[in-house]
Design a binder for these strands. Structure first.
Lengths: 203, 203
DNA sequence: CCACTTGTTGAATTGCCGTTCAACAACGAG
DNA sequence: CTCGTTGTTGAACGGCAATTCAACAAGTGG
C-alpha cells in the first residue's frame, strides 16, 4: 500500500505521473490505470483526487509548459551580452536529444491541437510568449547597435520560434542526420542573416 | 447493408475511411467501429480486409503523405520561373485553413512520431524529400543568377521546410493572428534574405 | 484518548471494444 | 443454371477499463 500523503503532495505526484504516462502513450492514449501505476496507487485513489482524468492531464500539460518556459527564462536571466542571450535561447528551445521528455510532450500536444481546442489555446499562448521573449532580445541588441535587424522583430521572433519547434519535431522523430547540434547551426544560420551579426561567442 | 465491392475498391474505401477517422480521433485513438462506420460497413468487414487495424492505418498514412507530396510536385510542374516556383511551393506547403485535412493528419503523425518509429521514419523521409525539392528550385535559380544564395542550398531548404511545418501546426491550432497568408509572408521574409531576391511575382 | 476527517484500497458492476464465426448474399466461371 | 468463391452481416464471446462503494487506515482537533 502507498504511504498516505496530503492533498497537495499527492496532486503534485499525480501531475508528474500523468506527464510520464502521456509521454509513453500520448495524451489521448493514457489510461487511468497507467497514471495510477506511475504514481504507485490504484485507479480509485487517482479518481479520488481527480474525478475527471482530462482535468489531471490538462493540469499536467499546463504545468509542463510553464516549466519549459520558466526554464528558458532562467537560463536567460544572468546574461547581458545580446549575442550570448540569443545563442543560449536558441539552444534552450531545442530538445537535448530524442528522449527529451519536455519537448516530446509538447510535440504530442501539437499533434492533438487540431482536435483539442484547449491544448491548441495553450500552445498558441506558449508560442506567443516565446516570440515576445525573442523580440525583447532582438530589440535590445538592436538598440545597442549590436544587431542590425533585417526586418521587424516580430517576424524574426516568429520565425525563430517556428524553426525551434519544427526541428524539435525532427529531433524527437530521430532524424538520422539532423541532431540537436545541427539544428542549432541551422537556426543560427537564419539568426545571422536576420541580425546581421556573426553570432560568435567570445569567451 | 452496404453494396458488395471488389477487393481493391473496398480497400481504397477503407483507406479513406481510416484517414477520416484518424483526423477525428487521432492516429492512436481510432476505433475499429469508427473506421467501419466511416466506410459504411461493420467491424467484421473491416477485419476481413485488414485483420490488423494498424496495417490499415499505416497504409492510409503512407498514401496521405504520397498524395501531399505528389500534389506539391504537380503544382510545381508547369512553372519555369524560379521566383514563381519558389513562391508557389511555399504556398503549397501550408494548409489552406485550420480544417485542411491533409496537414491536420500530418500534424497528428508528427505528434506520435516520438513514440512510433514507423511514423517517425515516414515523416523523416517526407521531410528530406521536401528539402530536396527546395534544393532543386534554389540551385536552378542560382545557376541562372536569379538567386544569390546566402548559404548552401541544403541549409536554406531545411529551414524552408521547417518553417512550413511549424506554421502548419500553428494554423491547424487556429492561432488567432497567424493565418495562412501571414505564414506565407513570414516564410517569404526568410526566403528573400536567403535568395537575395525580392520574390515578387510579375504577371 | 476519542471522534471525525481524509486518503487509500479492493472487489463488484457496467459497458464497450475487439474478435470469432456461422450464415447468407452477390458474383463469376464453366 | 449451378457451384464455388468472395464479401458482408449479426450475434455471441471474452476481456479490459472506468466507475462506484463499502471498508479500513492514518492522521487531526478537541
Amino acid at each position: 500500500m502507498a504511504t498516505r500523503k496530503t492533498r497537495s503532495e499527492r496532486r503534485a505526484d499525480l501531475v508528474e505521473a500523468a506527464r510520464r504516462a502521456m509521454i509513453q502513450h500520448g495524451p489521448g492514449g493514457v489510461l487511468l490505470n497507467q497514471v495510477a501505476e506511475e504514481a504507485g496507487l490504484t485507479s480509485g485513489a487517482v479518481l479520488y483526487h481527480y474525478p475527471d482524468l482530462s482535468d489531471l492531464l490538462l493540469e499536467a500539460n499546463q504545468a509542463g509548459m510553464e516549466r519549459f518556459y520558466a526554464e528558458r527564462m532562467r537560463r536567460l536571466a544572468g546574461l547581458t551580452d545580446p549575442v550570448e542571450k540569443l545563442v543560449v535561447t536558441i539552444r534552450s528551445g531545442l530538445p537535448t536529444d530524442a528522449e527529451d521528455s519536455d519537448v516530446r510532450l509538447l510535440c504530442e500536444l501539437g499533434g492533438s491541437a487540431g482536435r483539442n481546442r484547449v491544448y491548441a489555446a495553450l500552445l498558441t499562448t506558449l508560442f506567443d510568449r516565446q516570440v515576445s521573449m525573442y523580440q525583447t532580445i532582438l530589440e535590445l541588441g538592436a538598440a545597442r547597435e549590436i544587431f542590425t535587424l533585417a526586418t521587424d522583430s516580430q517576424t524574426i521572433g516568429r520565425n525563430l520560434v517556428a524553426l525551434e519547434d519544427a526541428y524539435g519535431y525532427r529531433i524527437v522523430a530521430r532524424h538520422p542526420t539532423l541532431d540537436a547540434a545541427t539544428a542549432e547551426e541551422l537556426i543560427l544560420s537564419y539568426a545571422r542573416q536576420a541580425t546581421g551579426n556573426p553570432l560568435e561567442l567570445t569567451p
